[in-house]
Nucleic acid binder design. Structure first.
Lengths: 197, 197
DNA sequence: CAACAAACTTGACAGTGTAAAGTTACCATC
DNA sequence: GATGGTAACTTTACACTGTCAAGTTTGTTG
């Protein structure tokens, strides 16, 4: 009578979680709501994900994969002839665009205590995203004569901080004033920082 | 028999919330736990704060006040003869130090969906913190010949993004690998960004 | 066909936020 | 000083949550 076999409940639950996340935000997301959306009983998720944290950890892992892909695509599709600085700007813009397109997912990835931050796979994919972003920084350091490893690493981290900080603050601004049209301009030119320091 | 009057339950609840936040993190924080810690019944908080969101909004307001004060103190106590760039660096360091000293409070202020982000007073105090931080940026723009308002604003936002992004990512790193000693060095020099762009 | 394991359901429990109604203590006014 | 009113707090109740334990169905394997 009841279909005791869903086919691919695991995937369905992850999609349901994504949907609920976008509809009600992270605060409205619950294991039971995901189960209901997938059309199964409230305890079904436990069989595929130990806990709510488990489900969201997995969702974050997938999201990081998409995120990395988006960064990589921006880099690969970008004009290879453009300046390194311009390519970095493009990467930053892709970062921001992902955050604006998937705000709840982005917050889950970077600002939620629910996923297990120590999860091995989550750490791995998060590292890949970082690597993808900073892939643009190293050649720029070379070009500018920054060669010692420590300085390069500091440059990577600061560039990442700038881009991530801007994305994070943009999302916060979006939470305050509904949709935000003054961010349509995308990531502002980081060249200004060059003039400042 | 029962003391039906606590004296200053409102304040006691805010302190309890702060304590619970530090002990169990934002996920372990509950209205009932705060009430218990303050020694009152679970429904008592409702009389002073409409809801959990109300309590945390108020806590965030207070935290932003302390935060602004810390930034101001760093600025005032800083060496007035030091370069503007150095003063900005000092401000960034104060920003980071607050985040590291009060990680849970910092996350509550910037990364939690629980406080009411549209609350008028919260917006106001958050704006004050921003003003305090960017107070150092304007003179630096002047010095560098950046005069048009739009560019100055972009500079402010990018500097804020860099500092905030670094603090945010540092806290995330702390969640992954317990305490983090490789951040003892404080905020890295933003001068590197000047070499990059 | 029988046994077994995997997938899912049902039921239960402790914990949560919050609303409503009841109790106590203080405070102003007569 | 008694009285009424109001603010502070408690008690009770309800719907919802995550998670565990035990039961039911289904597919697979011997």
């Amino acid at each position: 009578m009841n279909d005791y076999h869903h086919g691919d409940l695991r995937k369905a639950l992850l999609e349901a979680a994504h949907a609920v996340l976008n509809e009600k935000g992270i605060h409205g997301l619950s294991l039971r709501a995901c189960a209901a959306k997938a059309g199964v009983s409230h305890a079904a998720p436990a069989h595929h994900f130990k806990s709510l944290s488990g489900l969201l950890t997995e969702l974050a892992v997938i999201a990081f994969g998409d995120f990395t892909l988006a960064l990589r695509r921006a880099y690969d599709e970008g004009d290879a002839d453009s300046s390194l600085q311009q390519r970095l700007q493009t990467a930053g813009d892709a970062y921001l665009q992902f955050a604006l397109a998937e705000p709840e997912l982005f917050k889950l990835m970077f600002s939620s205590p629910l996923p297990d931050q120590k999860n091995e796979r989550l750490c791995a994919v998060s590292g890949e995203a970082y690597a993808e972003l900073t892939r643009v920084v190293k050649p720029l350091c070379d070009l500018r004569g920054i060669t010692d490893a420590a300085s390069v690493e500091q440059a990577e981290i600061l560039v990442w901080s700038t881009i991530h900080g801007y994305a994070h603050l943009s999302l916060k601004q979006m939470d305050v004033h509904g949709v935000c049209e003054d961010m349509a301009g995308g990531m502002p030119s980081m060249g200004i920082l060059g003039s400042l320091f």
